[in-house]
């Protein structure tokens, strides 16, 4: 193994500078729960590791004046769970992050790492998509924002430019009657990788679904935002016909592979089942009568 340099800058500018200077041989380190595993397996051999956990903006959680949240990309699942308000407003996003790994992994693993790792099975990604989260990224050419669904590019690939760092997730304010939920299917009860994951965020006004977003994981090369499923829910009272239609839309959106983790048939069927269950939980949390 060649020597590895390690840097833990206190500012984003330093981090971006070092990342850029290393010209492709550097890796960002958030919690390291993907990166270190990949290094040990010999899949990646970075020359430089840039640890972003000392950068205040990347490890803070801010509730904005309008009731939205800005969550630093390197905030760990355990820290997010301790926030007094976040989990009340975004229970689905929080549960999606909190079911990553185990207690030990939770002390480190971040939503930023989960997204940037580029896995189609990353658990927090469908929930973040459903939440309509916007990501802020910073690179040598400054800052930009994009919706979270624009980040995944394919298994292990993301749409960040060279030397760009994911800074934070911005979650919008919630109108009354809103909530969200995330469910995944795994053959075990923990320490497993999603065979299908489904995030749903919705708003109910007088029993009618006025807004909905659906994110679906592990059924295609990237996590999917399933607009057809959302459409089937919006305007309905979440009656069986509407939820069935949304479930069918989820199954139709699947472009899975047959692999050791699940068959095409199984994943397609389960996508619909999870949609129904997730909608049910989100609706109950939103105060459905």
């Amino acid at each position: 193994m060649t020597d590895i340099q390690y840097l833990a800058p206190h500012t984003l500018d330093e981090a971006v500078g070092a990342f850029a200077a290393a010209a492709g041989t550097a890796r960002i380190l958030a919690g390291g729960t993907d990166l270190l595993v990949q290094m040990r397996a010999g899949m990646v051999r970075p020359g430089l590791i840039v640890d972003i956990k000392k950068i205040a903006e990347m490890t803070s959680i801010e509730e904005t004046a309008d009731g939205g949240f800005v969550v630093g990309a390197a905030v760990s699942g355990a820290v997010l769970a301790e926030h007094p308000r976040f989990g009340k407003v975004w229970p689905g996003v929080l549960e999606s992050i909190n079911l990553i790994g185990s207690t030990q992994v939770q002390g480190r693993a971040s939503a930023g790492g989960n997204l940037c790792n580029g896995s189609p099975a990353g658990d927090s990604v469908p929930a973040m998509m459903a939440a309509d989260a916007i990501v802020t990224v910073q690179g040598p050419n400054g800052r930009r924002q994009m919706p979270v669904e624009a980040v995944p590019a394919g298994p292990g690939r993301i749409n960040l430019a060279p030397a760009e760092i994911l800074v934070s997730f911005t979650l919008p304010p919630r109108p009354p009657g809103s909530s969200d939920a995330y469910l995944r299917m795994i053959p075990r009860t923990e320490m497993d990788i999603a065979v299908v994951g489904c995030g749903v965020s919705l708003t109910l006004t007088n029993g009618v679904c006025t807004a909905a977003r659906v994110g679906l994981g592990a059924v295609a090369p990237t996590v999917l935002l399933v607009e057809a499923a959302a459409k089937a829910l919006i305007g309905s009272k979440l009656d069986t016909a509407a939820v069935d239609a949304a479930a069918a839309a989820c199954s139709a959106a699947c472009r899975p592979i047959d692999d050791k983790r699940g068959t095409i048939v199984y994943r397609t069927k389960v996508a619909g089942v999870l949609l129904k269950r997730t909608v049910g939980i989100a609706a109950d949390r939103a105060g459905r009568a």
Binding site: T189, D192, K260
Partner: peptide, 28 residues
Amino acid sequence: LNEEYIYNKDGKVDNPGFLDYRMPVCSD
């Protein structure tokens, strides 16, 4: 319920680790 060796089409074990070779965990 879950444990099995999965072989790929080249005659090689496709799940040589505890992530995909699923022994029960405590919560199971």
